[in-house]
């Protein structure tokens, strides 16, 4: 699984299908600060990802 991280770097992670919540935990990313797209579509942390999925993790902002 290919993961694009909020800092713009990319990481390849091998392994079983996992919940996105757990993937974020593994990457030490606070789920309250990001949204995650799986194969281009925003998904909730309860979804799972693995195999050939591509995840993109983006830090969203709140200022105005």
């Amino acid at each position: 699984m290919l993961i694009a991280l909020p800092d713009g770097s990319r990481r390849e992670i091998a392994g079983d299908i996992a919940r996105i919540e757990d993937i974020l935990k593994q990457l030490c990313i606070n789920p309250e600060e990001v949204i995650v797209a799986k194969n281009g579509r925003i998904v909730s942390e309860e979804e799972t990802a693995g195999g050939s999925d591509e995840l993109k993790i983006v830090r969203f902002v709140h200022g105005g």
Partner: peptide, 19 residues
């Protein structure tokens, strides 16, 4: 739907051109 929960409150940096 897009942002089910608010991010933690914080003082944010701001650039006029981003606005």
């Amino acid at each position: 739907c897009i942002f089910p929960r608010a991010p933690p409150a914080s003082v944010f940096p701001a650039l006029g051109s981003t606005c």
